[in-house]
């Protein structure tokens, strides 16, 4: 229980820091939005009111934080959708982003586990070497390079998928048709990371003393690998999951924009280009919150599985 509270506390502290940094970005930016002549007059007035610009900075900071915590009030879009509540904009943009991120994750995990297991069991065979080559390619080459390659090959040379997101898509099926390529581009890296990690873990566990004991006490090879090596390898993999999640979410920021997916990723790129800082900051806080919660869940699961954490005591 103490462990759970600790983790939640750490998460809240981090979120608080991200928000503070965000406030700094909004208030301390050179060429502040509040004096920008491009911003329409009525919006400027609205902003002044909302951010209590006449109050001292610490008080402004307080209002900023209070607005987010109590009302989910992240401010108003200034450039992209002038006058609209940032929160509302983000909410409408969330579904495709969530779809891309979660599907990428849910595709990567089983595939990574399968390839990692195959590579470990077929260690130093042709199969293993082939997998290793792909692993090093997919780990090294950034997702946006893959996205370009896929876009060129499968929308131009062989036009199997739309180049850009089809804005007329309504059903999940139609959305998926547009999202296949971005999802594939985002999944390759995580699959490779997981494959490499699981392979290493499995090999270490398979050559461990306790696996030898499992075999000498009369388990078959399969039984001992599944019940001991595999189970124990899954334990530290939770750490990799965290980096997978942040990796996918980061990649999605760029890849969504490349395929014109109407998600928060694309929105972030546009808002940065346009200098619509409220929007940018709000999206970043959203991203932080989502990734922190996911990591928290992973951490707690880890605590539940690993008796050394759960029961307490050292390793």
């Amino acid at each position: 229980m103490k462990y759970v509270l600790q983790r939640i506390g750490a998460m809240l502290l981090t979120l608080f820091l991200v928000m503070t940094l965000s406030f700094m970005v909004i208030r301390l930016m050179p060429m502040s939005l509040f004096e920008n002549p491009e911003v329409p007059k009525e919006i400027q007035e609205k902003l002044e009111d909302k951010f209590h610009l006449n109050d001292p900075l610490p008080l402004q900071y307080y209002y900023f934080m209070e607005g987010i915590v109590t009302d989910l009030d992240f401010g108003i879009s200034v450039k992209l959708r002038p006058g609209l509540e940032v929160f509302d904009i983000i909410v409408t943009r969330l579904p495709p982003t969530m779809l891309i991120n979660f599907l990428s994750l849910f595709i990567s995990i089983p595939l990574g586990l399968i390839f990692g297991t195959i590579a470990a069991l077929k260690r130093n065979t042709v199969v293993d070497h082939v997998i290793s080559v792909f692993v090093i390619l997919f780990i090294s080459i950034p997702s946006f390079v893959f996205a370009s390659l896929l876009q060129y090959l499968f929308t131009f040379v062989w036009p199997l998928f739309p180049t850009l997101y089809e804005s007329t898509a309504v059903t999940v099926g139609q959305m998926m048709h547009s999202l296949v390529l971005p999802i594939v581009a985002l999944s390759l890296g995580p699959i490779a990371t997981l494959t490499r990690y699981l392979r290493g873990e499995l090999i270490e566990n398979i050559s461990s003393e306790y696996l030898l004991l499992a075999r000498t006490k009369g388990l078959t090879k399969t039984q001992s690998i599944v019940r001991h090596a595999f189970r124990n390898s899954m334990m530290p993999i939770t750490n990799t999951l965290v980096s997978l999640i942040t990796g996918i979410m980061g990649g999605s920021l760029v890849v969504e924009n490349m395929f014109a997916v109407p998600g928060t990723g694309g929105l972030l790129t546009k808002s940065i280009f346009a200098g619509d800082h409220f929007l940018t900051v709000a999206i970043l806080i959203f991203y932080s919150a989502i990734s922190l919660v996911t990591i928290l869940v992973v951490d707690l699961c880890y605590g539940l599985i690993d008796p050394r954490v759960r029961v307490g005591g050292g390793k």
Partner: peptide
């Protein structure tokens, strides 16, 4: 260090880039 490390890398980097130009 732990608290700093807890912040999503991408978010922090982007925020700082906006701040620094």
């Amino acid at each position: 260090a732990e608290v700093l490390d807890g912040m999503p890398y991408i978010v922090v980097t982007i925020l700082f880039m906006i701040l620094f130009g």
